[in-house]
Design a protein around this nucleic acid. Structure first.
Lengths: 210, 210
DNA sequence: CTTGAATTTGACTAGACGGTCAACTATACT
DNA sequence: AGTATAGTTGACCGTCTAGTCAAATTCAAG
Protein backbone atom coordinates (compact mmCIF):
# COMPACT_ATOMS: atom_id res chain seq x y z
CA UNK A 1 0.00 0.00 0.00
CA UNK A 2 0.85 3.67 -0.10
CA UNK A 3 3.11 5.51 -2.45
CA UNK A 4 5.89 3.91 -4.48
CA UNK A 5 9.34 5.38 -4.96
CA UNK A 6 12.84 4.67 -6.14
CA UNK A 7 14.33 7.21 -3.74
CA UNK A 8 16.04 4.47 -1.80
CA UNK A 9 17.80 3.28 -4.92
CA UNK A 10 18.78 6.81 -5.89
CA UNK A 11 20.28 7.33 -2.46
CA UNK A 12 22.34 4.17 -2.74
CA UNK A 13 23.67 5.14 -6.13
CA UNK A 14 24.46 8.71 -5.16
CA UNK A 15 26.28 7.45 -2.09
CA UNK A 16 28.45 5.08 -4.06
CA UNK A 17 29.33 7.64 -6.68
CA UNK A 18 30.31 10.25 -4.14
CA UNK A 19 32.12 7.87 -1.82
CA UNK A 20 34.08 6.39 -4.67
CA UNK A 21 35.21 9.80 -5.79
CA UNK A 22 35.73 11.57 -2.47
CA UNK A 23 36.11 8.94 0.21
CA UNK A 24 33.60 8.22 2.95
CA UNK A 25 34.47 10.99 5.36
CA UNK A 26 34.41 13.70 2.72
CA UNK A 27 30.84 12.84 1.74
CA UNK A 28 28.04 14.65 3.57
CA UNK A 29 24.44 13.66 3.97
CA UNK A 30 23.45 16.94 2.34
CA UNK A 31 25.59 16.19 -0.70
CA UNK A 32 24.08 12.72 -1.04
CA UNK A 33 20.57 14.15 -0.78
CA UNK A 34 21.25 16.79 -3.37
CA UNK A 35 22.76 14.32 -5.83
CA UNK A 36 19.87 11.91 -5.33
CA UNK A 37 17.30 14.71 -5.41
CA UNK A 38 15.87 13.57 -2.10
CA UNK A 39 15.05 15.71 0.92
CA UNK A 40 16.78 15.07 4.22
CA UNK A 41 13.59 13.87 5.83
CA UNK A 42 13.21 11.16 3.21
CA UNK A 43 16.79 10.12 3.73
CA UNK A 44 16.04 9.27 7.34
CA UNK A 45 12.85 7.57 6.30
CA UNK A 46 14.95 4.98 4.44
CA UNK A 47 18.11 4.82 6.52
CA UNK A 48 18.59 5.34 10.18
CA UNK A 49 21.99 6.97 9.88
CA UNK A 50 24.75 7.90 7.48
CA UNK A 51 26.89 4.84 8.25
CA UNK A 52 23.84 2.60 7.85
CA UNK A 53 23.36 4.01 4.37
CA UNK A 54 27.03 3.63 3.55
CA UNK A 55 26.93 0.00 4.61
CA UNK A 56 23.85 -0.68 2.50
CA UNK A 57 25.42 1.15 -0.42
CA UNK A 58 28.56 -0.97 -0.25
CA UNK A 59 26.48 -4.12 -0.22
CA UNK A 60 24.42 -2.88 -3.14
CA UNK A 61 27.56 -2.05 -5.04
CA UNK A 62 28.91 -5.51 -4.46
CA UNK A 63 25.78 -7.06 -5.93
CA UNK A 64 25.30 -4.69 -8.84
CA UNK A 65 28.86 -3.90 -9.81
CA UNK A 66 31.74 -5.87 -8.33
CA UNK A 67 30.13 -9.29 -8.23
CA UNK A 68 28.92 -9.26 -11.87
CA UNK A 69 32.34 -8.12 -13.05
CA UNK A 70 33.99 -10.91 -11.10
CA UNK A 71 31.52 -13.57 -12.15
CA UNK A 72 31.99 -12.63 -15.78
CA UNK A 73 35.75 -13.04 -15.67
CA UNK A 74 36.02 -15.87 -13.17
CA UNK A 75 33.36 -18.16 -14.62
CA UNK A 76 34.20 -21.76 -13.74
CA UNK A 77 34.09 -22.91 -17.37
CA UNK A 78 37.00 -20.68 -18.32
CA UNK A 79 40.53 -22.06 -17.92
CA UNK A 80 41.84 -20.90 -14.56
CA UNK A 81 44.67 -18.68 -15.72
CA UNK A 82 42.47 -17.25 -18.44
CA UNK A 83 40.15 -16.11 -15.66
CA UNK A 84 42.89 -14.06 -14.06
CA UNK A 85 43.87 -12.68 -17.42
CA UNK A 86 40.36 -11.63 -18.26
CA UNK A 87 39.78 -9.97 -14.96
CA UNK A 88 42.99 -8.01 -14.92
CA UNK A 89 42.68 -6.91 -18.50
CA UNK A 90 39.05 -5.94 -18.08
CA UNK A 91 39.94 -3.79 -15.11
CA UNK A 92 42.74 -2.20 -17.07
CA UNK A 93 40.46 -1.45 -20.00
CA UNK A 94 37.76 -0.04 -17.73
CA UNK A 95 40.11 2.42 -16.16
CA UNK A 96 41.74 3.30 -19.45
CA UNK A 97 38.41 4.12 -21.03
CA UNK A 98 37.42 6.22 -18.05
CA UNK A 99 40.63 8.14 -18.38
CA UNK A 100 40.11 8.69 -22.09
CA UNK A 101 36.62 9.94 -21.41
CA UNK A 102 38.27 12.60 -19.28
CA UNK A 103 37.06 11.08 -16.02
CA UNK A 104 39.28 10.39 -13.05
CA UNK A 105 40.77 6.95 -12.44
CA UNK A 106 39.17 6.00 -9.15
CA UNK A 107 40.53 2.55 -8.46
CA UNK A 108 38.63 0.01 -6.40
CA UNK A 109 35.42 1.41 -4.92
CA UNK A 110 35.76 -0.74 -1.84
CA UNK A 111 39.45 -0.65 -1.10
CA UNK A 112 39.70 2.97 -0.04
CA UNK A 113 36.78 2.60 2.34
CA UNK A 114 38.30 -0.53 3.82
CA UNK A 115 41.56 1.34 4.37
CA UNK A 116 39.94 4.03 6.48
CA UNK A 117 40.26 1.88 9.56
CA UNK A 118 39.34 3.76 12.71
CA UNK A 119 38.00 7.17 11.87
CA UNK A 120 35.13 5.53 10.02
CA UNK A 121 32.36 3.64 11.80
CA UNK A 122 33.16 -0.06 12.21
CA UNK A 123 29.88 -0.98 10.54
CA UNK A 124 31.03 0.59 7.28
CA UNK A 125 34.60 -0.65 7.34
CA UNK A 126 33.46 -4.19 8.07
CA UNK A 127 31.13 -4.18 5.08
CA UNK A 128 34.05 -3.15 2.89
CA UNK A 129 36.28 -5.81 4.41
CA UNK A 130 33.70 -8.48 3.75
CA UNK A 131 33.50 -7.50 0.11
CA UNK A 132 37.28 -7.62 -0.25
CA UNK A 133 37.40 -11.07 1.28
CA UNK A 134 34.80 -12.29 -1.17
CA UNK A 135 36.82 -10.89 -4.00
CA UNK A 136 39.90 -12.68 -2.73
CA UNK A 137 38.00 -15.95 -2.94
CA UNK A 138 37.73 -15.67 -6.72
CA UNK A 139 41.49 -15.41 -6.89
CA UNK A 140 41.92 -18.33 -4.51
CA UNK A 141 39.64 -20.59 -6.49
CA UNK A 142 41.20 -19.73 -9.82
CA UNK A 143 44.74 -20.21 -8.57
CA UNK A 144 43.84 -23.39 -6.73
CA UNK A 145 42.29 -24.70 -9.94
CA UNK A 146 45.39 -23.70 -11.89
CA UNK A 147 47.50 -25.56 -9.39
CA UNK A 148 45.34 -28.66 -9.58
CA UNK A 149 45.65 -28.54 -13.36
CA UNK A 150 49.43 -28.31 -13.09
CA UNK A 151 49.46 -24.94 -14.82
CA UNK A 152 51.56 -23.20 -12.21
CA UNK A 153 54.66 -23.99 -10.19
CA UNK A 154 54.63 -22.65 -6.64
CA UNK A 155 55.81 -23.92 -3.28
CA UNK A 156 52.98 -22.38 -1.33
CA UNK A 157 49.74 -21.86 -3.20
CA UNK A 158 48.16 -19.70 -0.54
CA UNK A 159 51.18 -17.41 -0.27
CA UNK A 160 51.26 -17.04 -4.04
CA UNK A 161 47.55 -16.20 -4.07
CA UNK A 162 48.02 -13.56 -1.42
CA UNK A 163 50.86 -12.10 -3.45
CA UNK A 164 48.85 -11.98 -6.66
CA UNK A 165 46.05 -10.31 -4.79
CA UNK A 166 48.36 -7.79 -3.14
CA UNK A 167 49.91 -7.06 -6.51
CA UNK A 168 46.53 -6.46 -8.03
CA UNK A 169 45.11 -4.32 -5.25
CA UNK A 170 48.35 -2.41 -4.97
CA UNK A 171 48.37 -1.65 -8.67
CA UNK A 172 44.77 -0.57 -8.55
CA UNK A 173 45.41 1.69 -5.60
CA UNK A 174 48.38 3.23 -7.35
CA UNK A 175 46.26 3.79 -10.43
CA UNK A 176 43.96 5.90 -8.31
CA UNK A 177 46.82 7.79 -6.71
CA UNK A 178 48.41 8.58 -10.05
CA UNK A 179 45.09 9.08 -11.80
CA UNK A 180 46.39 6.80 -14.53
CA UNK A 181 45.57 3.25 -15.61
CA UNK A 182 49.22 2.45 -16.28
CA UNK A 183 50.01 0.60 -13.02
CA UNK A 184 47.41 -1.94 -14.18
CA UNK A 185 49.05 -2.48 -17.55
CA UNK A 186 50.65 -5.86 -18.12
CA UNK A 187 49.63 -7.04 -14.68
CA UNK A 188 48.68 -10.50 -15.86
CA UNK A 189 52.17 -11.20 -17.10
CA UNK A 190 53.54 -10.14 -13.72
CA UNK A 191 51.06 -12.38 -11.96
CA UNK A 192 52.24 -15.29 -14.08
CA UNK A 193 55.76 -14.76 -12.77
CA UNK A 194 54.46 -14.91 -9.22
CA UNK A 195 52.76 -18.15 -10.12
CA UNK A 196 55.76 -19.69 -11.83
CA UNK A 197 53.83 -19.98 -15.07
CA UNK A 198 55.76 -18.19 -17.78
CA UNK A 199 53.43 -17.89 -20.78
CA UNK A 200 54.30 -18.27 -24.45
CA UNK A 201 57.64 -16.44 -24.21
CA UNK A 202 58.68 -13.50 -26.30
CA UNK A 203 62.46 -13.58 -26.97
CA UNK A 204 64.08 -12.81 -23.54
CA UNK A 205 66.40 -9.80 -23.34
CA UNK A 206 69.50 -9.72 -21.20
CA UNK A 207 70.25 -6.98 -18.65
CA UNK A 208 70.81 -3.47 -19.85
CA UNK A 209 72.72 -0.55 -18.37
CA UNK A 210 71.20 2.67 -16.96
CA UNK B 1 63.98 37.53 20.23
CA UNK B 2 60.93 36.65 22.24
CA UNK B 3 59.83 33.35 23.62
CA UNK B 4 61.00 29.92 22.50
CA UNK B 5 58.74 26.94 21.97
CA UNK B 6 58.48 23.48 20.54
CA UNK B 7 54.75 23.80 19.99
CA UNK B 8 55.24 23.67 16.25
CA UNK B 9 57.03 20.36 16.53
CA UNK B 10 54.39 18.97 18.86
CA UNK B 11 51.69 19.93 16.39
CA UNK B 12 53.47 18.16 13.55
CA UNK B 13 53.86 14.99 15.59
CA UNK B 14 50.30 14.97 16.85
CA UNK B 15 49.03 15.49 13.32
CA UNK B 16 51.00 12.56 11.97
CA UNK B 17 49.95 10.23 14.74
CA UNK B 18 46.28 11.06 14.36
CA UNK B 19 46.27 11.10 10.58
CA UNK B 20 48.04 7.78 10.43
CA UNK B 21 45.49 6.21 12.69
CA UNK B 22 42.29 7.88 11.53
CA UNK B 23 42.91 9.27 8.07
CA UNK B 24 43.09 12.93 7.17
CA UNK B 25 39.41 13.77 7.04
CA UNK B 26 38.62 12.19 10.39
CA UNK B 27 41.18 14.34 12.18
CA UNK B 28 39.99 17.67 13.56
CA UNK B 29 41.99 20.72 14.48
CA UNK B 30 40.63 20.45 18.00
CA UNK B 31 41.87 16.88 18.33
CA UNK B 32 45.31 17.85 17.08
CA UNK B 33 45.46 20.74 19.52
CA UNK B 34 44.43 18.60 22.42
CA UNK B 35 46.95 15.88 21.63
CA UNK B 36 49.71 18.46 21.20
CA UNK B 37 48.58 20.41 24.26
CA UNK B 38 48.41 23.60 22.24
CA UNK B 39 45.57 26.11 22.17
CA UNK B 40 43.76 26.84 18.93
CA UNK B 41 45.14 30.35 18.73
CA UNK B 42 48.69 29.00 18.79
CA UNK B 43 47.84 26.53 16.08
CA UNK B 44 47.01 29.36 13.72
CA UNK B 45 50.09 31.21 14.82
CA UNK B 46 52.20 28.41 13.34
CA UNK B 47 50.08 27.24 10.42
CA UNK B 48 47.72 29.17 8.30
CA UNK B 49 45.26 26.31 7.86
CA UNK B 50 44.62 22.65 8.55
CA UNK B 51 45.78 21.48 5.11
CA UNK B 52 48.93 23.60 5.44
CA UNK B 53 49.72 21.80 8.67
CA UNK B 54 48.97 18.42 7.13
CA UNK B 55 51.31 19.15 4.27
CA UNK B 56 54.09 20.24 6.61
CA UNK B 57 53.46 17.18 8.77
CA UNK B 58 53.79 14.83 5.80
CA UNK B 59 57.06 16.46 4.82
CA UNK B 60 58.34 16.25 8.37
CA UNK B 61 57.36 12.61 8.51
CA UNK B 62 59.24 11.88 5.33
CA UNK B 63 62.40 13.40 6.76
CA UNK B 64 62.17 11.98 10.24
CA UNK B 65 60.62 8.57 9.61
CA UNK B 66 60.27 7.26 6.05
CA UNK B 67 63.53 8.56 4.65
CA UNK B 68 65.76 7.22 7.46
CA UNK B 69 64.09 3.82 7.23
CA UNK B 70 64.64 3.74 3.48
CA UNK B 71 68.21 5.00 3.66
CA UNK B 72 69.08 2.35 6.22
CA UNK B 73 67.84 -0.50 4.05
CA UNK B 74 68.72 0.86 0.62
CA UNK B 75 72.29 2.00 1.37
CA UNK B 76 74.32 1.88 -1.85
CA UNK B 77 77.03 -0.31 -0.31
CA UNK B 78 74.60 -3.16 0.27
CA UNK B 79 74.08 -5.68 -2.56
CA UNK B 80 71.00 -4.56 -4.51
CA UNK B 81 68.71 -7.50 -3.77
CA UNK B 82 69.82 -7.50 -0.16
CA UNK B 83 68.48 -3.94 0.01
CA UNK B 84 65.02 -5.04 -1.02
CA UNK B 85 65.19 -7.92 1.40
CA UNK B 86 66.18 -5.70 4.30
CA UNK B 87 63.50 -3.17 3.59
CA UNK B 88 60.68 -5.63 3.25
CA UNK B 89 61.70 -7.64 6.27
CA UNK B 90 62.19 -4.53 8.36
CA UNK B 91 58.70 -3.37 7.50
CA UNK B 92 57.31 -6.76 8.33
CA UNK B 93 59.07 -6.82 11.69
CA UNK B 94 57.95 -3.29 12.49
CA UNK B 95 54.32 -4.11 11.98
CA UNK B 96 54.60 -7.44 13.71
CA UNK B 97 56.07 -5.85 16.81
CA UNK B 98 53.37 -3.22 16.80
CA UNK B 99 50.76 -5.91 16.66
CA UNK B 100 52.35 -7.82 19.50
CA UNK B 101 52.43 -4.66 21.57
CA UNK B 102 48.67 -4.60 21.15
CA UNK B 103 48.73 -1.63 18.80
CA UNK B 104 46.95 -1.49 15.49
CA UNK B 105 48.72 -2.29 12.22
CA UNK B 106 48.49 1.01 10.41
CA UNK B 107 50.32 0.38 7.16
CA UNK B 108 52.04 3.13 5.24
CA UNK B 109 51.50 6.57 6.78
CA UNK B 110 51.54 8.22 3.39
CA UNK B 111 49.64 5.81 1.21
CA UNK B 112 46.22 6.29 2.73
CA UNK B 113 46.50 10.05 2.46
CA UNK B 114 47.61 9.79 -1.15
CA UNK B 115 44.61 7.61 -1.90
CA UNK B 116 42.14 10.21 -0.68
CA UNK B 117 42.15 11.87 -4.07
CA UNK B 118 39.55 14.58 -4.33
CA UNK B 119 37.83 15.11 -1.02
CA UNK B 120 41.14 16.16 0.47
CA UNK B 121 42.83 19.43 -0.45
CA UNK B 122 45.19 19.06 -3.43
CA UNK B 123 48.02 20.56 -1.39
CA UNK B 124 47.93 17.63 1.02
CA UNK B 125 47.46 14.88 -1.55
CA UNK B 126 50.30 16.22 -3.66
CA UNK B 127 52.67 16.16 -0.70
CA UNK B 128 51.80 12.51 -0.16
CA UNK B 129 52.23 11.72 -3.85
CA UNK B 130 55.66 13.32 -3.86
CA UNK B 131 56.74 11.18 -0.93
CA UNK B 132 55.51 8.01 -2.65
CA UNK B 133 57.41 8.87 -5.80
CA UNK B 134 60.57 9.34 -3.80
CA UNK B 135 60.05 5.99 -2.18
CA UNK B 136 59.62 4.38 -5.60
CA UNK B 137 63.02 5.73 -6.59
CA UNK B 138 64.75 3.56 -3.98
CA UNK B 139 63.13 0.51 -5.53
CA UNK B 140 64.06 1.67 -9.01
CA UNK B 141 67.71 2.19 -8.14
CA UNK B 142 68.04 -1.12 -6.33
CA UNK B 143 66.40 -3.08 -9.12
CA UNK B 144 68.33 -1.25 -11.81
CA UNK B 145 71.53 -2.06 -9.91
CA UNK B 146 70.48 -5.69 -9.62
CA UNK B 147 69.86 -5.76 -13.32
CA UNK B 148 73.24 -4.22 -14.10
CA UNK B 149 74.88 -6.82 -11.89
CA UNK B 150 73.06 -9.61 -13.75
CA UNK B 151 71.26 -10.70 -10.60
CA UNK B 152 67.80 -10.70 -12.11
CA UNK B 153 66.22 -11.83 -15.35
CA UNK B 154 63.45 -9.59 -16.64
CA UNK B 155 62.32 -8.40 -20.04
CA UNK B 156 61.28 -4.97 -18.90
CA UNK B 157 63.08 -3.61 -15.86
CA UNK B 158 60.74 -0.71 -15.35
CA UNK B 159 57.63 -2.87 -15.54
CA UNK B 160 59.14 -5.30 -13.05
CA UNK B 161 59.97 -2.45 -10.71
CA UNK B 162 56.45 -1.12 -10.89
CA UNK B 163 55.17 -4.60 -10.13
CA UNK B 164 57.44 -5.05 -7.12
CA UNK B 165 56.35 -1.68 -5.84
CA UNK B 166 52.66 -2.43 -6.39
CA UNK B 167 53.11 -5.76 -4.65
CA UNK B 168 54.73 -4.08 -1.69
CA UNK B 169 52.28 -1.21 -1.34
CA UNK B 170 49.37 -3.56 -1.90
CA UNK B 171 50.56 -5.88 0.82
CA UNK B 172 51.09 -3.00 3.18
CA UNK B 173 47.65 -1.64 2.49
CA UNK B 174 46.11 -5.04 3.08
CA UNK B 175 48.01 -5.31 6.34
CA UNK B 176 46.25 -2.18 7.49
CA UNK B 177 42.88 -3.41 6.32
CA UNK B 178 43.25 -6.73 8.08
CA UNK B 179 45.03 -5.25 11.08
CA UNK B 180 47.62 -7.98 10.67
CA UNK B 181 51.24 -8.01 9.50
CA UNK B 182 50.75 -11.29 7.62
CA UNK B 183 50.28 -9.87 4.11
CA UNK B 184 53.84 -8.56 4.46
CA UNK B 185 55.28 -11.96 5.38
CA UNK B 186 57.55 -13.58 2.83
CA UNK B 187 57.17 -10.66 0.47
CA UNK B 188 60.82 -10.66 -0.52
CA UNK B 189 60.58 -14.17 -1.89
CA UNK B 190 57.57 -13.12 -3.94
CA UNK B 191 59.45 -10.09 -5.20
CA UNK B 192 62.28 -12.36 -6.32
CA UNK B 193 59.84 -14.27 -8.51
CA UNK B 194 58.73 -11.04 -10.12
CA UNK B 195 62.37 -10.28 -10.79
CA UNK B 196 63.20 -13.70 -12.16
CA UNK B 197 65.80 -14.23 -9.43
CA UNK B 198 64.98 -17.43 -7.63
CA UNK B 199 67.08 -17.39 -4.44
CA UNK B 200 69.02 -20.29 -2.96
CA UNK B 201 66.31 -22.84 -3.68
CA UNK B 202 64.66 -25.05 -1.14
CA UNK B 203 63.66 -28.36 -2.78
CA UNK B 204 60.80 -27.37 -5.14
CA UNK B 205 57.50 -29.12 -4.60
CA UNK B 206 55.14 -30.07 -7.35
CA UNK B 207 51.50 -29.08 -7.47
CA UNK B 208 49.19 -30.44 -4.81
CA UNK B 209 45.48 -31.06 -4.72
CA UNK B 210 42.92 -29.17 -2.66
C1' DC C 1 66.20 46.65 33.35
C1' DT C 2 63.96 47.78 29.48
C1' DT C 3 62.25 46.70 25.14
C1' DG C 4 59.84 44.46 21.68
C1' DA C 5 59.24 40.42 19.07
C1' DA C 6 57.66 35.71 19.58
C1' DT C 7 54.38 33.13 21.71
C1' DT C 8 50.19 31.99 24.37
C1' DT C 9 45.47 32.30 25.64
C1' DG C 10 40.49 31.75 25.72
C1' DA C 11 36.56 33.64 24.24
C1' DC C 12 34.34 34.31 19.95
C1' DT C 13 32.06 33.52 15.11
C1' DA C 14 29.81 31.75 11.12
C1' DG C 15 28.72 28.04 8.79
C1' DA C 16 28.39 23.02 8.14
C1' DC C 17 27.12 18.85 9.96
C1' DG C 18 24.10 14.73 11.26
C1' DG C 19 19.78 14.14 12.72
C1' DT C 20 14.52 15.10 14.17
C1' DC C 21 9.81 16.05 13.56
C1' DA C 22 4.90 16.95 12.69
C1' DA C 23 2.29 17.93 9.03
C1' DC C 24 1.28 16.89 4.28
C1' DT C 25 0.60 14.06 -0.08
C1' DA C 26 -0.09 10.40 -3.09
C1' DT C 27 -1.74 5.88 -4.06
C1' DA C 28 -2.67 0.67 -3.82
C1' DC C 29 -6.08 -1.95 -1.91
C1' DT C 30 -10.83 -2.90 -0.25
C1' DA D 1 -15.01 6.35 -2.91
C1' DG D 2 -12.69 5.75 1.34
C1' DT D 3 -8.79 4.87 3.99
C1' DA D 4 -4.70 3.04 5.76
C1' DT D 5 -0.11 3.31 4.64
C1' DA D 6 4.23 4.46 2.39
C1' DG D 7 6.49 8.27 1.05
C1' DT D 8 7.57 13.45 1.12
C1' DT D 9 8.58 17.97 2.83
C1' DG D 10 10.91 21.93 4.92
C1' DA D 11 11.67 24.04 9.02
C1' DC D 12 14.22 23.18 13.03
C1' DC D 13 18.05 21.71 16.63
C1' DG D 14 22.28 20.95 19.08
C1' DT D 15 26.84 20.08 18.17
C1' DC D 16 31.02 20.27 15.86
C1' DT D 17 34.26 22.56 12.84
C1' DA D 18 37.76 25.61 10.92
C1' DG D 19 39.19 29.81 11.71
C1' DT D 20 39.69 34.83 14.19
C1' DC D 21 41.30 38.14 17.40
C1' DA D 22 42.78 41.40 20.89
C1' DA D 23 44.89 41.14 24.95
C1' DA D 24 48.22 38.96 28.02
C1' DT D 25 52.67 36.56 28.83
C1' DT D 26 57.38 35.34 28.30
C1' DC D 27 62.03 35.96 27.43
C1' DA D 28 66.46 37.04 24.38
C1' DA D 29 69.00 40.80 23.36
C1' DG D 30 70.62 45.66 23.83
Amino acid sequence: MGRVSDARQRLLEATNELTWKLGYNAVTVDAICEKADVRKGSFYHYFESKPALAKAALEAQWESYSRPLLEASFAADIPPLERLKRYMETMYKNQKEKKQRGERVLGCPIFSVAMSGEGVEAEVVEAAQRALKRKLRYFQTAIQDANDAGLIKVDDTEAATQAVYSLFEGAWARARIQNSPEPLAGLYEQALRLLGAAEQESPPKKSRVA
